[in-house]
Design a protein around this nucleic acid. Structure first.
Length: 151
DNA sequence: TTGACCTGGCCGC
DNA sequence: GCGGCCAGGTCAA
């Protein structure tokens, strides 16, 4: 029996909704889409503490379990991106070379990322600049700034 | 089947 | 240097 838990974290750049199934995070997104009655913030206290530190600009490694997509190609992309540590950035081209694919396909895979921050797709930028972001380039820019990068 | 996506390389000018 | 074209993987329409 799958147990689903919902949490809402208020970050300095907007509300973040977190959803976990059993003990895996299945979604972490910049939106306020949790019904109040369903919230179970206590369950997420460890993660929220880390988010506190993260949004204070401190170096944080997220160690929570996340659910990777079923799609094998995306799994490869996500695993490659998850190797990036706090403050590290790379390009779509570099990720594509590592997994033997094309930058365009990497961008598409990352655009489907449900677990923002945990799969740090904001650390993947275009060669020509910051690149795009499914939740808006503005959020991507702010996240990168927290980690010491200006775009 | 087509077009749209978080890109980049190549070509012609 | 810049604009146009298209390969790349996936999915919604």
């Amino acid at each position: 029996m799958t147990e689903v838990r919902y949490g809402l974290y208020k970050s300095s750049i907007g509300p973040i909704t977190v959803i976990a199934e059993d003990d895996e995070i299945t979604m972490l997104d910049f939106c306020d889409c949790v019904e109040k009655g369903l919230m179970n913030n206590e369950w997420f206290s460890d993660l929220f503490q880390k988010l506190d530190m993260y949004f204070q600009g401190k170096r944080v490694e997220f160690t929570v379990k996340i659910r990777l997509p079923m799609n094998p190609f995306r799994q490869r992309v996500f695993k490659e991106v998850m190797k990036l540590r706090w403050g590290e950035i790379t390009t779509y081209k570099h990720v594509a070379e590592r997994i033997g694919s094309s930058p365009r396909a990497v961008g598409t895979a990352l655009s489907k990322n449900q677990t923002l921050l945990l799969v740090p797709c904001h650390r993947v930028i275009a060669e020509s600049g910051i690149g795009g972001y499914s939740r808006g380039v503005d959020i991507k820019r702010k996240l990168l700034k927290l980690e010491g990068h200006e775009f």
